[in-house]
Each structure stands twice: as C-alpha cells, then as structure tokens.
Simulated scan of single mutants.
Amino acid sequence: MDYIRAFIVGGTICLIGQILMDKTSFTPARILVSFVTAGVILGAIGIYDPIVEYGKAGATVPLPGFGYALAKGAIKDVKEMGIIGAFTGGIKATAAGIAAAIFFGYLMAIIFNPRAKS
C-alpha cells in the first residue's frame, strides 16, 4: 500500500508540473523554483507534513520535498540556535542530498561525455 500511496502523491506532483508546462508559459526553471518554494512554504506552515506522512517517498523525493527539508531544517535549528539557525539549518538538513547530486552529476559527466546540442 505504501508504494501505491507514494505513486499517487509523486504522480500528482508530476501531473501538476506537466500541466504547468503545457498550459502556461513558465520555463522549466521557473517551475523548478516554484516547486521548491511551495515545498518551503507548505512545510513551514505545516501543510506538507500530512502529505509526507501519507505519501512518504512520493512526497519527499520530488522538488517540493527538497523545499520541505529546507524548511524543516531551518525551523529545527532556529529552535536550537536562534536566528542564525535560519541560515544554517536548511543547509545542514539538505547537505547529503546536495552532495550526492553534485557527485553523481559529475560521475555521469565523466562516464557519458556530455556535449551541447547543435
């Protein structure tokens, strides 16, 4: 059942992204930033928590999940360290994901020799 719920939540997020690409003039970069920002806002006000509990990886893996992790990390560190935690908490909470993205992106660039479209 967890797989089905993750598929439903993740699929709904992807459906929203596809609708935004098809029906608006938003660029993919603007959609990316909008999803991360939405995750931060929804995480900060507590709306994304029930979505994560229901959809698990279907909610945490897509882009809003990254924003959610940023918000949760910042909120946690603000409670522990004060205002400086607003700047450090999100970075600490997402450091492993950012490092993995950089490492695997670099590894794929070495393996597949990317080049610009002509």
Rank of each mutant, 00 (worst) to 15 (best):
R30S: 13
F66H: 05
I51G: 01
I16Y: 12
V61T: 00
S25W: 08
I51F: 05
A101R: 00
C14W: 01
I51P: 07
A100P: 00
F66E: 06
D77Q: 14
T12S: 15
K56L: 04
R115Q: 15
F103M: 09
M21C: 02
I47F: 14
Q18R: 13
K117P: 05
V78W: 08
I19D: 03
M81D: 12
G105P: 02
A116T: 05
L20M: 15
I41D: 06
P28A: 00
A101T: 07
C14I: 14
A44K: 15
A38K: 07
M1E: 09
A86V: 03
E53I: 05
R115I: 07
C14D: 09
I8K: 01
V36G: 06
I4C: 00
V40E: 08
L32N: 09
K79R: 15
S118F: 03
G39V: 10
Y106K: 03
A71N: 09
E80A: 15
Y48D: 08
Q18C: 10
M81W: 12
K117H: 13
T37L: 14
R5W: 10
F35S: 14
I47G: 04
A71V: 02
A6P: 01
E53C: 04
G11W: 00
I4V: 12
G43C: 06
R30I: 14
G82A: 03
L70K: 06
M1C: 01
A6K: 02
D77R: 12
L20F: 12
T24R: 09
G11P: 06
G17W: 01
K92T: 05
R115D: 08
I111S: 09
Y68D: 06
I8E: 02
C14Q: 11
G46V: 08
Y68W: 11
P28V: 08
R115T: 12
S25C: 00
G43D: 12
C14A: 15
E80N: 13
D22R: 15
F35E: 14
G17H: 02
M1P: 06
G73V: 03
L63A: 14
R5I: 10
I4P: 01
Y48E: 11
I110R: 13
L70D: 00
G11A: 12
I111H: 05
F35G: 07
L15D: 05
Y106Q: 03
K23Y: 13
S118R: 13
I16L: 14
F104P: 02
K23T: 06
F87P: 00
T88S: 12
P50Q: 10
T94Q: 03
A57F: 14
V9H: 02
G55W: 06
I75L: 14
